[in-house]
Amino acid sequence: MKIVVTGSLGNISKPLTQELVQKGHSVTVISSNPERQKEIEAIGAKAAIGTMQDVDFLTTTFTGADVVYCMEALGAGAFFDPNLDLFVAINTIVTNYKQAIEQSGVKQIVHLSSVGAHTNKDNGSLTMHYNAEKIINELPSDVSIKFMRPVGFFTNLLRSIPTIKAQGGFISNYGGGTKEPWVSPLDIASVITEEIELPFNGRTVRYIASEEASPNEIAKVLGEEIGDPDLKWMVISDEQLLNGMISAGMNPQIAEGFVEMQASQGSGLLYEDYYRNEPTLGKTKLSDFKKEFAKVFNQQ
């Protein structure tokens, strides 16, 4: 099949492209960075250099494709841009996708969404995925769409490395011994590959997860791997977390969204629809990710 992959060679799009090429598909990867072209071609895919803000470019690239994989991403440092409206920025990208899909005539879409996209209440920043699904769902009924809803990425834990080094542990507004689902980008790529090769029919939703682990378990496993068996997952108040993020220069709207999202993780509200539609867990576990975590930890 002819498949278009958005997201350049990111944590999901790179292994996804590799899997699709290995399975014999003709893959075109969209990237805004011309320097990525050689790396994309080295994998065996074609590079389409352009931006998600250019509807004409997207339309041209989508035309003739059997399947398009759509994901929304903002540039590095965007969360620290004081002028950014996260929801407007994401809605703009999704609306561009929608227009390009209609104009190109492509009929099969895989859209990367997120856990929490089932509601626009009490899920903080994840409301952007609820909004995105709503916009994509406005496509004509003859366009089949598969919404992929992964849970929190293992790789998000890498963001806590500076905090661990400076303050001696993970810091959040929730914690404890209650398990929650986590996912590896590698497992997300494998599920998307599977869904691309399965028949499309109407609108479907699939959750993606790799393992369930509590904050305390995560701190124990990762702490032992980096030589700090007493590493803790420390809990502070919503206000303290918000003030810390804003003091670090984060966009206040995004900081508030993160705090609300993480509170929803702690209460379990975020996972209500996930557990109503619980998936089979993927093969990549915390015991696999801990090696990546330690490598990055030791490099920083």
Rank of each mutant, 00 (worst) to 15 (best):
T6H: 06
T6W: 03
T6V: 03
N11Q: 15
I12Y: 05
P15D: 03
L16F: 07
Q18E: 15
Q22A: 15
N33E: 08
N33Y: 12
N33C: 00
N33A: 10
E35V: 05
I43L: 12
A45K: 04
A45L: 00
K46V: 08
K46W: 01
A47F: 07
F57E: 05
T59M: 04
T61F: 10
T63S: 15
A65N: 11
D66H: 13
G75A: 15
F79L: 09
F79P: 00
D81I: 12
V88R: 10
V88C: 00
T95D: 14
N96S: 08
Y97C: 05
K98A: 14
I101W: 03
N120D: 14
M128D: 06
Y130T: 02
K134L: 11
I136C: 06
E138M: 12
S141R: 05
V143C: 01
R149Q: 15
P150E: 10
N156H: 09
R159C: 00
I161K: 07
I161Y: 12
T163G: 03
G169N: 11
T178R: 14
K179H: 07
P181I: 11
V183K: 03
S184V: 04
D187P: 06
E197K: 03
L198P: 00
A209W: 08
A209F: 10
N216T: 13
D230H: 10
L231I: 11
K232I: 02
I236L: 01
L242N: 09
L242Y: 15
G249F: 11
N251P: 01
I254T: 09
A255V: 07
V259G: 06
A263C: 02
S264G: 13
G266I: 05
R276L: 14
E278G: 00
L281N: 01
G282T: 12
T284V: 15
S287Y: 04
K290P: 06
K291V: 14
K295Q: 14
V296K: 09
